[in-house]
């Protein structure tokens, strides 16, 4: 009994001593159980301003090899590029889930977050989570999207904003639909926004915004559409309008 007591206290004292200089670093929690895999519950693909905290927390769950949730398993978050977690490590709760608030780094672009757990033998299991940081231009585009585009281009309704998506005969593409939108060049996107869908033989249900939005506002919208695209948009060389 006595021996166990010392075996616990000495490393803890050492730990406290080591951490005294860096009070921000919490003590590594002692796992109470281990799982075999970690899965994402919610909070991926969020868009936030550079350096800002994501609106929704990121929630992951640790499962055992049979796929049922494990409580008290260790979870650790890590990411490059100045991403901050609050907290960045801990044990899963009674529902097997672990929740953290994420602040993205100071540069615009996609960020990858890794949530990892270890099993009893120390083997790592991890899940990769994508988040998107937007700079000034994309953020302006995000605001303009919320005013002019979202009602038709977002199929989801909220209590404050009913979606018009399903009322159209041509289905408007959500801005995250990279498979479709990445194939459209910047010049064509700008042409569709400015002159309406009919300008490129697409549906006239997309009205022209060239007289409503300024050139730089349309550029901002295109930057936003590119920023949230999934799969991510990769520009290739110079594009010219094809129609």
């Amino acid at each position: 009994m006595n021996r166990t007591w010392w075996a616990w206290v000495i490393p803890m004292m050492a730990g406290v001593g080591a951490c005294a200089r860096h009070p921000a670093t919490p003590l590594e929690p002692q796992p109470k159980a281990f799982g075999a895999e970690v899965i994402l519950v919610s909070g991926d693909k969020q868009v936030a301003g550079v350096g800002a905290q994501l609106d929704q927390p990121v929630v992951v769950q640790v499962n055992d090899s049979k796929g049922s949730a494990v409580a008290g398993a260790p979870v650790r978050f890590a990411a490059a590029g100045g991403v901050a977690f609050q907290p960045d490590r801990g044990l899963t709760g009674s529902d097997g889930q672990f929740t953290t608030n994420v602040s993205l780094g100071g540069m615009a672009g996609p960020y990858q977050i890794v949530a990892a757990t270890t099993d009893s033998s120390g083997k790592r299991a991890e899940v990769r989570i994508e988040e998107i940081a937007v700079g000034y231009q994309e953020r302006l585009g995000q605001q303009l999207n919320a005013i002019h585009c979202i009602r038709c281009h977002d199929p989801e309704s909220t209590p404050e904003r009913v979606s018009n998506h399903d009322n159209l005969s041509a289905q408007a593409h959500a801005f995250t639909e990279g498979a479709v939108l990445n194939a459209i060049s910047d010049a064509n996107l700008i042409a569709i926004i400015s002159h309406g869908g009919a300008a490129l033989n697409k549906s006239p249900e997309m009205p022209p915004y060239g007289n409503r939005l300024t050139k730089s506002e349309i550029d901002a919208l295109v930057a936003y559409i590119r920023a949230v695209s999934d799969p991510p948009y990769r520009p290739q060389g110079v594009f010219y309008a094809t129609n």
């Binding site: 301003g49 550079v50 350096g51 800002a52 905290q53 602040s103 780094g105 100071g106 540069m107 000034y136 953020r139 302006l140 605001q143 303009l144 005013i147 901002a220």
Partner: peptide, 23 residues
Amino acid sequence: LPARYLESSCGQCHMERLTGTPL
């Protein structure tokens, strides 16, 4: 200034509501 607070700098000159500075 940490990037998350960058919009504060716009507020040094702009006293009106700008679309690009929601925060």
